[in-house]
């Protein structure tokens, strides 16, 4: 069963000591790969258009967690920008804020997106191993917003439509 308490390496997406903001869906999963529909094949292109992190897909390990600044996932509504992380086994994204459509897509596909309104790059070392508790709302010893009830319902069901099936029982 999926767990709300996970441990993994933390990718601190930073530039000049600041968390990178406005990472849009073209930086996460470029539109040249949009024809790909097999989730297994999406991971290799994650962040391959994000300056400084183009080797992310090669270096990422299952269980990793990503930390970014404001407005993560702004731009288009492409689902691949969420699924490419699932493809690599990345367990969660934490950001100061999200593009509205991205957040909705991620929640609907049971991928944990966690909001950390006062996230700072200097609070963490790049690739340090951290514990993320999405129930209590803690990243190591720092506060994050816990998952909402709705987000938990969908997360444990494994997706929005899987949740709909649970409603009928």
């Amino acid at each position: 069963m999926a767990s709300l308490k996970i441990q993994g390496r933390l990718w601190v997406l930073q530039r000049n000591g600041e968390l990178i903001s406005d990472i849009d869906t073209d930086m996460i999963f470029h539109n040249q790969y949009l024809a790909i529909t097999d989730i297994a094949k999406m991971g290799q292109y994650a962040f391959d258009n994000l300056e400084g992190f183009k080797d992310f897909a090669k270096l990422a390990k299952p269980g990793d967690i990503v930390l970014a600044g404001d407005n993560f996932g702004s731009g288009s509504s492409r689902q691949q920008a969420v699924d490419c992380f699932t493809s690599l086994g990345v367990k969660a994204v934490i950001a100061r804020s999200y593009g509205a459509i991205y957040k909705r897509n991620a929640i609907n596909s049971a991928f944990p997106v966690i909001t950390m309104p006062d996230a700072k790059a200097s609070d963490f070392s790049h690739l340090e191993t951290v514990v993320l508790d999405m129930e209590k709302g803690l990243l190591r010893d720092r506060k994050v917003e816990p998952m909402s009830g709705v987000q938990k319902d969908i997360f444990f069901a494994g997706g929005l439509f899987q949740y709909a099936e649970t409603l009928k029982k």
């Binding site: 509504s77 459509i101 929640i107 609907n108 709705v150 969908i154 439509f161 949740y163 709909a164 409603l167």
Partner: peptide, 16 residues
């Protein structure tokens, strides 16, 4: 809403 959320509303009568 987008097509996924709309389909979910068709199926469940709800949205989040």
């Amino acid at each position: 809403m987008g097509d996924v959320d709309t389909a979910f509303a068709f199926k469940s009568g709800k949205i989040w």
